[in-house]
Nucleic acid binder design. Structure first.
Length: 720
DNA sequence: TTTCCCAAGCTTTTT
DNA sequence: GCTTGGGAAA
């Protein structure tokens, strides 16, 4: 590796803003040598090295898929810490908690644990931490509650009622829609009418009432001590704005700001980065415009494209050498990307060999698709590929239901990322609501939830009770002197008993949870008579998760921001057995890599989603999504789709493969045919037959071992 | 006012 | 396939 960087000293001038006076201090200098015990030249290529050892000042690292972005960031952290920057002065902002944890653990291994004190996490988590500290300055109580998307919609619903009543005969938007309209106003900084115009033109007639509702919503949350996800970002900005002293204090502590996945930041996040780096000016953002996939929640690719203008004197480092995938996989990725309306001047290259061509696999229906995938996985496993180095990716959470059944049937362990989260299940939210009420007695959403679980109490009565509880100075947990009817006073006082007792003497978290669960158990059985055993297991699950937290507040914060934690328990449990296969939405798979990747349901209408068809920008995003999926693969890539699907009332109907994959030359994407092997001709493990796709125009993949089918049935001959 | 029942509608993707 | 909303009965 060449050592020629043309710089003896890694140094850049930097300017410190202190009060009104600008005092220029001398450049920060690091010795050229690597920190003890680490050979960065050995570990990194020239560009990566340049990025990792960058001195001060703003830098944009444009890192294509698989170009060692994480590796570079980790070495960057290690470099800075190794050169004496206190880990506490480093802020590493990432998009998902998974990404940040992965990064910090990997960095720790480089420098024996010192890096674990690096501050960071998701933007939202970082802001929450700040807001906990400064809530009072914004007129919020310290015990404010964080609302997840569902809770936020519930708050909207409380306010929506009277407004919607005025439009009885017309279709007033539903709570979720309203909540997401509000969210997009705040994420993009657009006005209500421009949001409506671009995304919800059919609701333009409700501009006025929605405007009023929006103001009420903002007001209400403030009064009740509630913050939604967007508030976390926006109130932090507001805090900085109204109180420059706080900004200075916070930003001074952020000597180096590192941001991962910068292409997916929205306006508020970009402003936060600007603010946090406003004292030291040391900001490194890493990203890839071709992998921007969060437009739907306000991410703005413009942030990364405009970075050089936004930060005067910013340098740009490009990483283009791909270390992950074979050339065949990159060829497909590059080819797919050329279909984008917005052109990317990006062509990934590798020095790895050509490798196997990616295959496109039509399956007769999704049962066959699932069998194909699971069989292939077993075969690869027989060849020594660990399950956790393989992944099945899909557009949306439910795309894998059928496959999950098949995997269970075959005893293949898997984890699933993305899609529905346990923390969103009704019974989990119930239990959490009790904790929330204990933490923040002003949390009306939680109160409503737990009160309405009681017999004979609906929205109206719940409202009256909440008023009673909160009417006094301190919340009163008693029915003494209450105006409520005897019909439910008994059940109400049982609830108050439990809450009052827990509030009085703060017992350890697990004991609190135990009391709550004891109280909730009969309610659970009654409300979910059908399937309460399954839900009871989930609650045990929750107890397990809770035991890892020191106190109620930190459990609640964590649940609000990172519901994935719950499914992480599965991982640990399974890992005793065999590291499990990964199922993931493409969104959740960002930043991960696997030896073999299966993209299922590569259908037109799924990927690209039918919701995006007709919107050029949205279609480009779908394309980038496919690009992200393809570039997760190192060696093997299969894109499959069912040729026939079922729909509720229409029955069977024919599908079309993703338009992004149609018309690609066979030399880039190889068509494969599934053939069902005669049953008795199948070797026990089925491994030998899948391994070598024979070179040729159409690879044949045999699908052995399907007892329910006539052995002579060739799939090609099935009667469609 | 609540609850129950039926119909309608709707779903990406995440913090 | 599931949640959400409306309407009617208790």
């Amino acid at each position: 590796m060449s050592a020629d960087l043309g710089r003896d000293r890694i140094a850049r001038a930097r300017v410190v803003h202190l009060m009104a006076r600008r005092i220029v201090i001398s450049p920060e200098e690091f010795p050229v040598a690597d920190p003890e015990g680490l050979d960065f030249r050995e570990a990194l290529n020239e560009k990566q090295y340049e990025a990792a050892t960058w001195g001060a000042g703003p830098v944009l690292v444009v890192a294509g898929a698989g170009t060692g972005k994480t590796r570079t960031l980790i070495h960057r952290v290690a470099w800075l810490v190794g050169h004496g920057v206190a880990p506490e002065q480093l802020v590493l902002l990432t998009f998902t908690r998974r990404a940040s944890q992965q990064m910090l653990t990997r960095a720790s291994t480089l420098l024996d644990g010192r890096c674990s004190r690096v501050r960071g996490g998701t933007f939202h988590a970082f802001c929450l931490m700040l807001l906990k500290q400064y809530a009072a300055k914004l007129g919020y109580p310290n015990g404010f509650t964080v609302l997840d998307a569902q809770d936020a919609a519930d708050v909207v619903d409380l306010l929506r009622g009277p407004v919607a009543a005025r439009f009885k005969d017309r279709r007033f938007p539903k709570k979720r829609t309203i909540a997401s309209i509000f969210s997009s106003i705040r994420n993009t900084g657009q006005s209500l009418d421009s949001v409506l115009e671009s995304a919800y033109p059919h609701f333009l007639e409700f501009l006025e009432p929605l405007n009023g509702l929006f103001e009420q919503y903002v007001q209400y949350k403030k009064e009740q001590g509630l913050m939604d996800y967007d508030d976390l970002l926006i109130l932090t900005l507001k805090l900085f704005q109204q109180d420059p002293g706080v900004l200075r204090e916070v930003a001074s502590a952020c000597r180096y700001v590192l941001v991962d996945e910068y292409q997916d930041t929205n306006r508020a996040q970009a402003l936060l980065v600007k603010a946090l780096s406003s004292v030291h000016g040391n900001v490194m953002v890493v990203g890839d415009d071709a992998q921007s996939i969060y437009r739907f929640r306000g991410a703005d690719m413009g942030n990364i494209l405009r970075f050089p203008e936004e930060y005067a004197g910013a340098s740009v480092i490009k990483l283009e050498h791909n270390y992950r995938s074979t050339q065949a996989i990159l060829d497909l990725a590059n080819e797919v990307l050329t279909q984008a309306k917005h052109r990317f001047d990006k062509r990934l290259y590798t020095e790895r060999g050509k490798g196997d061509l990616p295959g496109i696999v039509p399956a007769p229906d999704d049962r066959f698709e699932s069998r194909f995938v699971s069989q292939m996985i077993l075969a690869l496993r027989e060849q020594g590929e660990p399950l956790n180095r393989m992944a099945v990716l899909f557009r949306s959470g439910h795309n894998s239901y059928d496959l999950e059944v098949e995997l269970n049937k075959r005893g293949i362990p898997f984890v699933k990322y993305g899609g529905l989260k346990l923390a969103e299940a009704a019974h989990i939210k119930d239990v959490i609501a009790y904790l929330k009420v204990l933490e923040n007695p002003r949390d009306v959403v939680a109160w409503n939830r737990i009160l309405q679980l009681l017999d004979g109490i609906g929205p109206k009565t719940a409202g009256r009770i909440i008023e009673w509880v909160q009417g006094a100075e301190a919340p009163r947990y008693t029915t003494d002197g209450s105006p409520f009817s005897a019909a439910y006073v008994a059940s109400l006082s049982r609830l108050f008993d439990v809450l009052g007792r827990l509030r009085q003497h703060e017992s350890p978290l697990d004991e609190q949870l135990e009391s709550i669960l004891a109280y909730y158990a009969p309610i659970l059985r009654e409300t979910y008579t059908e399937d309460y055993p399954k839900r009871e297991t989930d609650l045990e699950h929750l107890t397990g998760v809770a035991s890892r937290f020191a106190d109620r507040a930190s459990l609640l914060d964590s649940l609000a921001l990172d519901p994935i934690e719950l499914s992480a328990v599965d991982v640990e449990k399974e890992e005793k057995d065999e590291p499990p296969l990964v199922l993931s939405t493409i969104h959740s798979a960002k930043g991960l890599e696997f030896k073999s990747v299966f993209v299922i349901q590569s259908l037109d209408g799924v990927l690209p989603s039918s919701y995006s068809v007709g919107d050029a920008e949205a279609m480009d995003e779908e394309l980038r999504l496919l690009y992200v999926a393809i570039t997760r693969a190192e060696d093997q890539l299969f894109l499959s789709y069912p040729m026939v699907q079922f729909r509720r009332y229409e029955g069977q109907y024919f599908t079309k493969p993703s338009r992004f994959l149609e018309g690609l030359p066979d030399t880039i994407l190889e068509p494969c045919t599934l053939v069902e092997a005669p049953r008795d001709a199948v070797p026990d493990d089925g491994s030998s037959r899948l391994q070598d796709g024979l070179p040729g125009p159409s690879r044949t993949l045999e699908a052995p071992n399907q007892p329910s089918h006539d052995a002579s049935d060739s799939l090609d001959d099935l009667p469609f």
